Amino acid sequence: MSKFGELIDGQIPVLLDFYTEGNVESSAMHPILRDVAAVLGDKVRVIKIDINKNMELTEALRVKNLPTLVIYKDGEMKWRHSGVQNANAIIDVIQEYI
């Protein structure tokens, strides 16, 4: 978990995508998040977190539904959403924290 603290403790917003392989909604987010990353470039870090490989973190953040998107900046959770979102909505939210 100390690596997680280092990951989210920066001035650049970090968008976490909690997913698992085989989940239809999670798979639908892959191209959307690629678009978000392409539009925002180095203004945001997009990180995918497989819940099956990161169970401790998933439980600590109480991730129950997939996909779950979370934005952190300066070590604080700024936004959280469960379910599929479109790229423009995600970009709009991230731009509030850039």
Rank of each mutant, 00 (worst) to 15 (best):
M55N: 03
V70H: 01
I12G: 04
R34W: 00
L15N: 05
P67A: 07
G5K: 15
L7A: 13
A38M: 08
M29L: 06
I47P: 07
G83I: 05
I8F: 06
A28E: 09
V14Q: 03
D50P: 04
Q85P: 04
D50Y: 08
G83A: 07
I32H: 09
T68K: 06
I32K: 10
E21F: 07
E76D: 08
H30V: 15
R80S: 13
S27Y: 00
E56L: 11
R34M: 05
D50R: 11
L15P: 05
D42E: 15
A87H: 10
Q95H: 08
H30G: 13
E6C: 10
I71G: 10
N54Y: 12
E21N: 10
I49F: 01
E6V: 09
K78P: 01
Y97S: 09
G83C: 07
I12D: 07
E59M: 13
S26Y: 01
K73G: 08
T58D: 00
Y97F: 12
H81V: 01
R80E: 06
E6F: 10
I90N: 05
K48I: 00
D74C: 12
A87P: 07
L61V: 00
G5I: 10
G10T: 14
S26R: 01
L33E: 04
K73Q: 14
I98V: 14
D35M: 10
I94T: 04
N52W: 12
R34S: 08
V93C: 06
I49V: 11
S26M: 01
H81D: 00
F18M: 03
P67G: 05
K73W: 02
I51S: 01
L7D: 09
E21R: 11
M77V: 01
T20D: 05
P13T: 03
N88G: 08
I47M: 08
E76W: 12
R62T: 00
G75C: 06
V24E: 12
I47F: 03
I32E: 08
V44N: 05
G41P: 08
K53S: 07
G75D: 03
L33Q: 05
R45K: 15
L66F: 14
L40I: 06
W79H: 10
G83Q: 08
K3T: 15
G22M: 01
T20L: 11
N65Y: 04
V46C: 06
N54K: 12
I98G: 13
R62V: 00
V24Y: 04
L69H: 08
N54S: 12
D50F: 09
E59S: 13
K43E: 15
L40W: 02
T68C: 03
I71D: 07
M55E: 05
E25R: 12
S27A: 13
V14K: 05
G75I: 09
D17W: 01
